[in-house]
Structures are given as structure tokens and as C-alpha cells.
Nucleic acid binder design. Structure first.
Length: 649
RNA sequence: GCUGCUGUAGCUCAGAGGUAGAGCACUCCCUUGGUAAGGGAGAGGUCGAGAGUUCAAUUCUCUCCAGCAGCACCA
């Protein structure tokens, strides 16, 4: 029999008979490895312990000691075990797919009755029985017809559809967990007992469309999480609890930032504290934009449909627009208007006033543009996804050959702002041409290359979002993550060849002829609303001092100190610090607790001693330690801290 | 928008076919207390909206609205 050579991760190689399985390889190394082995990698491909190897290869045996492929396999098999448990309890449930996801897996089922939380408990119990039974996993490769016939006979239409979607030359693998059978490309465990029975948990059930298509059946998706041991599971559940405490919707209430109510779904009632954050951020952005070479403009909210027809929004975006029709009773002419969902068409109107020269380009036109979009009800989420919001929007009108420079310049601009706001790390997604698009391939080639080159030149790495570009041009998205791990697009930078054409924007080139400018749509924060939500979650409510709505509370310990408290507050306010007095008839403990919950960064406590010595006792949020400082010293220090980052030396 | 769940005092939540309760917050009184809740009293609710069943609905049914989770959407 032919010999093959297998190379181990440590660089050593050994010869085996061709057709050897990783299980046999593991056994040849040690009894304990044979027992602990979960799966293998063969030349980087994830390999079942029972699959033969018939060529020279690099091999690694995976155990649960390493987090990677072995844990993934556990999660994968748990998906099958869950599907089996469900079908054992409810034989008429139809099974579909169940992939591994971050921290666990899900499986989609078709069942008339909804799964209840009690059902989840029952499924989990049955899963534990299956694991305890150490059911063997075995596999067979089936001809396509046999598999289709099997699933048709068993009334599993989803599986038949899945088989249809598998390329004809790929072998169809059938797996059995005990008596229960599923279609799966593998690899798999050797038996169900390899799953740590106390390290998984079913989390939730929710609807999900079959094949992600909203025109197709709504299935029930059960989510589970799994880890290599019980401690990891507990740590994960604890992390979820901690994350829930950072939720901006909870902190927004505790910090008295804003509220929302039924009469205005998806819109925000900003309270004084929240509005303070908003305006502080806006002031900062305005300064940055000025320094960055932008001009600021402002454009109408309610605009005649004619403009939206010209821009193409009426056609492509109408269902997301608030349409405004004036009652004929009190209007002479009944015009149909729409609240602007975007600022771009209005900016082109400003660009189009008067003749523009190539000398005017690049023209960077910024607006804190209030937009209204009729977002689907299910998409609304706190202040992160709303129907009324304000973008830190700008459009750069430039020549094609300026795209790269402007892109690089923008990424630098955004990076500095994100750094100032406490985001050292953000992800960049690059979306290239979609199937349906405007403009020639040649133009797309140039635009894509310009974005890519600029991103690399700016020192950022990007993930490719293949085919996800806008129909009018490629784009970069700058993504931040919220407390619960959900991604939110904040910054964006998009090339647009179409709108200048549709709205007939031109400039006079050096050759004296009219030319079409390119538009770059760009935003750093995205929207103030979303960004503030992210900011709150990122900092768990403990905003950087300069952004905190109430920076200092000066709290009296005894009422004899009230006069001095007001003097301290006045001094701080004069020095540009947002300070308040708390002279209520409450104990200092009570005041400290209340303002700590409210995330006030600094509490200055004042009793007899401080009055006599003209000092304050400083307590910083999150610190138990206090510190006595003279009034002048603390006013100077806090005044410096209150200075926004762009104004510091 | 779709599936499921939820909606009771400002907040967090309990409750039941016979028109409601707790803690915190709020108001007043006592207390002047040294770093995460001092004590007492009081006030506060068309039980999300509408319709139906019933002698009687906040409770059961239906419709709608909003919120939550996920999916779809996010040009």
C-alpha cells in the first residue's frame, strides 16, 4: 500500500498508509490524544476524524483545549442534536438549516405552533439526554436521487430545495446521530458524548425568512450558545448581563438624556442633558469641518416632489419618504411635497447656483442636515435607528482625478475625530460594484481603485463587501459596534456619478468647456442620534469630561456650606464648566449615589472644613478615593478638562 | 414590513372576571448627616387605544397603536 507523509504543526513528519484517518493518526501518537481528539485540519481544511487522507499533507489534530475548529464542531453538532431533539418531541416539524454563528448556532424550523420558552427548556432537556447517550455519528455518501427521494418521502421540502442548490458534482453526505438523519457536508463528531453537556444553552426563538427572502416562508429560528466548558458559558452569560447595563436606552433614561413616545415613533424628545451632548458634539464637528476646508450650508425640509422626481428618489425611495400633502381647504394649490430623506439633491441646487469653475473644485459642502425617513417599524432601535435624525452630511464636488486625494483626506479627517471621541478602533468596509448599476465599467474601475488606494494610503485595513455598493458608485463604510455586539454603520464615503448627471451639475473646465463633477457623499458621525447612542454604549455612560452633560455637581454636606457651594458653582461656570449645586436636605451618601447613577464625572463635596479652608473634596466617578484641593486649583484643572480635544494644545 | 413576545403610577415590576398593589422617584415634616439609598407622613393610575362577549372587563376575544428580540430593509 502507498505511503503518505503527514506533517504535524511542530514541523515533524511521519509516514502513514494512504487512506489513514485522523482518528488513527491521533491513536498513533497517544491514547490521550485519541480520546480527546474532536476533529482535524488537513492542509487547512476542516477534516472529520473518519475521513481518509490519501496524499501528503499538513495535519493538525484538534481538541477542545484549543478554541478554534473543535469548538466550532461542537457548536455544529449541537445544531444537529437540537434538530433531532425537536423532531423527537414534535415529529411533524420540518427541518431546514442550522449553521454555526459567533458563540453558538441556530437552527430554523417550520412548525405551525410557535415555540414557547417552556418548549426551549424541554428541547434542552432532550438534548442533554442525547448527549448523555453518547450516540454514535456515522456518515454515508448518497446519490442525489436517493437523497431527494428520501426527503420527498419524509415530507421535508426544505431539504429537497437545499439539495437542488448544491452543485451537481459535490457528494451528498448523510449523517446519522443515532437513528436521526440529516443532510450535512460535515465534518462531525464521533459521538454525541463529545459535546460538553453543561456548556450550552438555548437562548431565544425568533422568526427568520427561509433563505433570507422576505417573500418566502417565515420559519422559527432557535438560537443557542455553546462553549468548551461550563465556566466559559457562565462567563458569556455574565458578559451579556454586563452588556445590557450599557444599553443606551437604559442609560438614556438613567442619565435623563431623552425620551420617546407613541405619538412620534422613531423620533427623539431630547432632554436638557441629552441636548447638551448633542450641541457639544455639533459645536466640535462644526469647528472640525471649518478647519477641514468645508463650507456649511442649510437647506429646506419640505421640498416639492418635482425635485425628488428629478433626483430619482421618487422612483427608488418613495416608500421611505414622508409625503406631505396640504389640505385643499386651506391651500390654493395642492402641491405634493416630501420631507427630505437626504440632503444631496438640495446641495446640488446650491452648487448649481451660478457658474462653477474648475478652480472652485473640490468644493466641500457640509450641512447638519435634518432628515426624515419612513423606516420600517421593525428596524427602529432606540436612538440608533430612527425616523427623524440629523446627519453630519457633506458633499464634495470634485473631478474624477481628485477622488483619491479627497478620500484619503476624508479618512484622515474621520480618524482624528473618532480618536478624539474615544474610538481607537473602527472597521472599514469597502463595497464594490453591484449587479445593477449606473455608469460604465471603466468609470467603476477608476472609482474603486481610487477608494482602495486611498484607504491603503490612509493606513486602514478594509473588509470587502462584494457587490454591496450603491447603484451610483462604490462606497466605504466606517463601522462601530454597540454594547450588545451589533454593528452600526456610522461614517460613510460614497462616490456618485449619477446624481450630478440627473440634476445637471456642471463646472467650466480649464478648457472652457462644461464638465460633469463627481459627488462624494460623506459623513463622519453618520447621524448625531446614532453616534450619541454608540458613544453612550462605548463609554457605558461615563462620557469623556468635555462631552458630559453635567460635568460637576457641587454637593453640600451641611447647609451652612450652601453659600460657599454657590460660589464654587459660579466660579466653575465662569471658567466654562457645566456645574450644578446640590444643596438639598439629603445626606452626602445619598447625593453621591444619585449623581454616580447619573454618571456625573466629578462630585465636589463641601462641609465645614472646606468652607473654612476654601478647598473642595473631589470625588471622581468610579473612584472611591477622594482628594482635597484648593478652589483655584480645581477650577483650573476642571476648566482644562472641559476643553474639547481640538482646542487643547 | 414579517414572526413571536410585551404594554398596570415618572421608573422597575406584582396582581386578579366584581372597577388595583410594592419598592424607588415625587411633595411635606423630622433629621445637618463626611462619600453609592437616614426616618415618618402624603399625593399619584380611564390598567396602551377601540370594539365584542358578559349582569359585570383592566382581566376573556378581536382589531389597531407602540415597545422588545430576530429576520428582511438601511438607496
Amino acid at each position: 500500500m502507498a505511503q503518505i507523509s503527514l506533517t504535524f504543526p511542530d514541523g515533524n513528519a511521519r509516514d502513514y498508509a494512504a487512506g489513514v484517518t485522523p482518528a488513527e493518526v491521533a491513536a498513533s501518537i497517544s491514547k490521550s490524544l485519541e480520546k480527546k481528539a474532536i476533529s482535524a485540519s488537513v492542509d487547512g481544511a476542516h477534516w472529520d476524524l473518519q475521513w481518509p487522507i490519501d496524499r501528503d499533507a499538513a495535519i493538525a489534530i484538534h481538541t477542545l483545549a484549543d478554541d478554534g475548529p473543535a469548538l466550532e464542531l461542537i457548536r455544529h453538532d449541537l445544531a444537529h442534536i437540537m434538530a433531532r431533539a425537536v423532531q423527537e418531541i414534535w415529529p411533524d416539524v420540518k427541518v431546514t438549516i442550522g449553521p454555526v454563528i459567533e458563540n453558538g448556532w441556530y437552527y430554523d424550523f417550520d412548525r405551525a405552533e410557535p415555540f414557547t420558552p417552556e418548549d426551549l427548556g424541554e428541547i434542552e432537556k432532550r438534548m442533554k439526554q442525547i448527549i448523555a447517550a453518547r450516540e454514535p455519528v456515522r456518515t454515508e455518501v448518497w446519490p442525489r436521487e436517493k437523497a431527494v427521494a428520501h426527503y420527498e418521502a419524509n415530507g421535508e421540502p426544505y431539504k429537497v430545495e437545499l439539495i437542488d442548490a448544491i452543485p451537481g458534482d459535490e457528494p451528498l453526505r448523510m449523517y446519522w446521530h443515532g437513528d436521526w438523519q440529516d443532510l450535512c457536508r460535515g465534518p462531525h463528531l464521533q459521538h454525541t458524548g463529545q459535546v460538553p453537556g453543561d456548556a450550552f444553552k438555548l437562548m431565544s426563538v425568533a422568526g427568520a425568512y427561509w433563505r433570507g427572502d422576505s417573500s418566502r416562508a417565515m420559519l422559527q429560528r432557535i438560537y443557542g450558545v455553546a462553549f468548551k466548558n461550563r465556566d466559559d458559558l457562565k462567563a458569556h452569560l455574565h458578559m451579556l448581563e454586563e452588556a445590557a447595563k450599557r444599553d443606551h436606552r437604559k442609560l438614556g433614561r438613567e442619565m435623563d438624556l431623552y425620551h420617546m413616545q407613541e405619538e412620534a415613533p422613531g423620533q427623539i424628545f431630547w432632554h436638557p442633558n441629552g441636548w447638551s451632548i448633542y450641541t457639544t458634539l455639533q459645536d466640535y464637528m462644526r469647528r472640525q469641518q471649518r478647519a477641514g476646508g468645508y463650507v456649511e450650508v442649510n437647506t429646506p425640509q419640505v421640498v416639492d416632489r418635482k425635485l425628488w422626481e428629478a433626483s430619482g428618489h421618487w422612483d427608488k425611495y418613495q416608500e421611505h419618504m414622508f409625503i406631505v400633502e396640504v389640505d385643499e381647504e386651506h391651500a390654493r394649490e395642492k402641491a405634493v411635497n416630501a420631507l427630505k430623506p437626504m440632503n444631496c439633491p438640495c446641495h446640488v441646487q446650491i452648487f448649481n447656483q451660478g457658474l462653477k469653475s474648475y478652480r472652485d473644485l473640490p468644493l466641500r459642502m457640509a450641512e447638519f442636515g435634518s432628515c426624515n425617513r419612513y423606516e420600517p417599524s421593525g428596524a427602529l432601535h432606540g436612538i440608533m435607528r430612527v425616523r427623524g435624525f440629523t446627519q453630519d452630511d457633506a458633499h464634495i464636488f470634485c473631478r474624477e482625478d481628485q477622488i483619491e486625494d479627497e478620500t484619503k483626506r476624508f479618512i484622515d479627517f474621520l480618524s482624528e475625530i473618532y480618536r478624539d471621541l474615544g474610538f481607537e478602533n473602527f472597521r472599514v468596509k469597502f463595497s464594490d460594484r453591484p449587479e445593477v448599476r449606473a455608469g460604465s465599467d471603466e468609470t467603476w474601475d477608476k472609482a474603486e481603485a481610487a477608494l482602495k488606494n486611498a484607504t491603503i494610503a490612509a493606513g486602514s485595513e478594509f473588509e470587502l463587501n462584494s457587490g454591496e455598493g450603491a447603484f451610483y458608485g462604490p462606497k466605504l463604510e466606517f463601522v462601530l459596534t454597540d454594547a450588545i455586539g451589533r454593528d452600526w454603520q456610522c461614517g460613510t464615503h460614497q462616490v456618485d456619478f449619477v446624481l450630478p448627471e440627473r440634476l445637471d451639475a456642471t463646472y467650466i473646465g480649464a478648457d472652457g468647456a462644461k464638465h460633469r463633477p463627481v459627488m462624494l457623499h460623506r459623513a463622519v458621525l453618520g447621524s448625531f442620534e446614532r453616534f450619541i447612542g454608540i458613544l453612550i454604549e462605548e463609554h457605558a455612560g461615563k462620557l469623556p469630561f468635555w462631552l458630559a452633560p453635567r460635568q460637576v455637581v457641587v454637593a453640600s454636606i451641611v447647609s451652612e456650606a450652601d453659600e460657599y457651594v454657590h460660589e464654587v458653582v459660579a466660579k466653575l461656570q465662569k471658567a466654562g464648566v457645566r456645574a450644578e449645586a446640590d444643596t438639598r436636605n439629603e445626606k452626602i451618601n445619598y447625593k453621591v449615589r444619585e449623581h454616580s447613577v447619573g454618571k456625573v464625572p466629578v462630585i465636589l463635596a463641601i462641609g465645614h472644613r472646606e468652607v473654612e479652608e476654601r478647598t473642595v473634596t473631589v470625588r471622581r466617578l468610579g473612584e472611591k478615593q477622594t482628594e482635597v484641593q484648593t478652589l483655584d486649583a480645581i477650577v483650573g484643572a476642571l476648566s482644562a478638562e472641559a476643553t474639547p480635544p481640538d482646542r487643547r494644545d
